[in-house]
Structure formats: C-alpha cells, structure tokens
C-alpha cells in the first residue's frame, strides 16, 4: 500500500549509494518544525553532518536540543543555532558561522513557515510583513547565504531545498497573504535555478498540502477542515515522514540534474477534480 502512513526507515533500506549523504554538511533552517526535524533525522540516517537552526530563542531551542540528543543516538554529530530569519544579515552571519564550523555547507533546507488565516480586509500591514518575512523572505535569505557558501566549496556546488505549500499556487479564502508569500517562494526556486546552475548549485521546492502537523489551518473544530483533508486521494493528512524521503533524494548524488522544480508531496491534492 504505497499511500499508507508508515514512516520509511531509510537506514533499514538496502541503501543505494545515491541516497547516501556521508560527509555532506547540511543546514536545516526551522529544524524545530515537524518537517524540518523529520528531514534532519533522514539526513542523519543517510550519514550527513547537521547544523540545526531554529527560528527563535525560545522553546524551539529545547526541541532542537532534544532532536540533537536523538541524532547523537544515531551516531550523528549536530549543532544547534538560533537563526533569526527576519533579517538577511542575521541569516548571513549565522550561515557563515555554520560554514566555518562545519568546513562548508553542501545542503541547505529551509522549512520556515508561518500561517495566517484572515480576510484581506482585516489583514494589517504588520501581519502581511510577518507573513512575507517567514514564508518568503526567510527562504530568499537562506538561498542567498547558502548559495554564497556553496560557491566556496571545492568543488563549488550544493543543494538548496525550500519547503513550500500548495496554497502558493491555488486559492483559498483567508489565505491571500500566506498564499502570495508561498507563490513568491515557488517562483524564487524557478528564477534562482537559472542563476545558480553555473555554480553547481541546484535549488528545488517541496510543496506540501494538508499535513498532520498543520493544526494552524486544519482546526479540528471546523468541519470543512476535515472535508479538506478528504480532498487528498489517500484521504489522510500527510506526515513529516512522507516528506523527508523527497529531501533525501534531492540532496543525493542522483538528483544533480534536477533543478528549478517544485515537487508536490500532497497526496494528489492538486492533481484531481
């Protein structure tokens, strides 16, 4: 049953060489998020060294430290950083520090996401700014700083993976600001792919749909939220473990010719009537 929710244990798979990330240095931005943490685990199982960047110096640090201990149990070294993604300079300085400590950055994943559900008439300037900051600007800053570090690699190159959402390409009431910000991130993938390709840097997006950690938009008290989940073909919300294998494939040696694409991991949500 290929659409079941059973997590894939990559370590238990025969392990084709192109899915191994041994010796690769990976930066995960928003590692405190469920999907960021799942990608960190999958990368650890694939052999990567990890920098776990959390967006705020609060309980996010605690959950990242917990993840760090879990990864230690898998025999993977990782370091926790606080990366305030609101300012590009902060992203640059932290990314530089991470690159110095790891000796470079080969893979950068940005899972920054902040949902706002509000009619446009009640969306304030400052709410729009925050939504843009976490759903678009953060991805822009991470791509800018990471690609700069990847240029310095010998040989030059790297993989950038941006986590986005299908609301960035399809409409829904109360999601004008959020959807527009993710639409911008998805176009960032396409635009930057052309610019970064000569430097050996690929950039791709993973666009998720209705996921099991998204209580921010799938309020269980709202019947329509349950109906929305049943719009997926397997009729279930996706899990972080549904997403992580895509991030492994995109980071691996088999995906070097893949760039500028936004892949859906959404249970077919966007592909049927």
């Amino acid at each position: 049953m290929t659409t079941s929710g059973t997590p894939v244990d990559l370590a238990a798979l025969p392990g084709p060489a192109h899915l191994r990330l041994d010796g690769k240095r990976a930066l995960i931005v928003a590692a405190e998020s469920p999907v960021g943490a799942a990608i960190a685990r999958a990368y650890a199982q694939a052999g990567a060294e990890l920098a776990l960047a959390v967006l705020r110096p609060d309980e996010a640090v605690v959950s990242a430290k917990r993840l760090q201990r879990e990864l230690e149990g898998l025999g993977t070294r990782s370091t926790v950083y606080v990366m305030d993604v609101v300012l590009g300079k902060n992203v640059q300085v932290t990314t530089r520090q991470i690159a110095k400590e790891l000796g470079g950055v080969d893979i950068a994943v940005c899972a920054s996401d902040l949902f706002l559900g509000k009619p446009i008439g009640r969306t304030s300037d400052s709410e729009l700014q925050q939504v843009m900051a976490y759903n678009f600007n953060a991805h822009f800053f991470v791509a800018r700083s990471a690609s700069d570090e990847m240029r310095r690699n010998d040989p030059a190159g790297g993989r950038i993976i941006l986590l986005s959402h299908v609301l960035g390409e399809r409409g829904l009431s109360n999601t004008a600001a959020y959807g527009a910000a993710h639409g911008a991130t998805q176009q960032l993938v396409r635009s930057l792919s052309q610019e970064l390709a000569p430097q050996g840097v690929t950039i791709n997006g993973i666009s998720t749909g209705w996921m099991d950690w998204m209580q921010d938009r799938l309020d269980e008290r709202n019947d329509d939220a349950g109906r929305a989940v049943r719009f997926t073909l397997p009729r279930r919300a996706g899990s972080p473990e549904d997403v992580a294998p895509m991030a492994v494939w995109l980071a691996g040696s088999g995906a070097g010719n893949v760039t500028g694409q936004v892949f859906h991991v959404d249970g077919g949500l966007t592909q049927h009537l």
Binding site: L114, F115, L116, G117, K118, P119, E127, Q130, V131, V166, L167, R170, G171, L172, S173, N174, T175, G209, W210, D216, R217, L218, D219, N222, D224, A225, R227, A228, F231, L269, T270, L273
Partner: peptide, 14 residues
C-alpha cells in the same frame, strides 16, 4: 482553487 470545499476559510492569528 480546488484544495478544499469552497466554504473553507481557515481562521488563524499569528
């Protein structure tokens, strides 16, 4: 659209 019933309008404050 097509991601959810047309009546679905998630409400969520930052």
């Amino acid at each position: 659209g097509g991601l959810a019933p047309v009546t679905f309008a998630p409400a969520h404050e930052i």
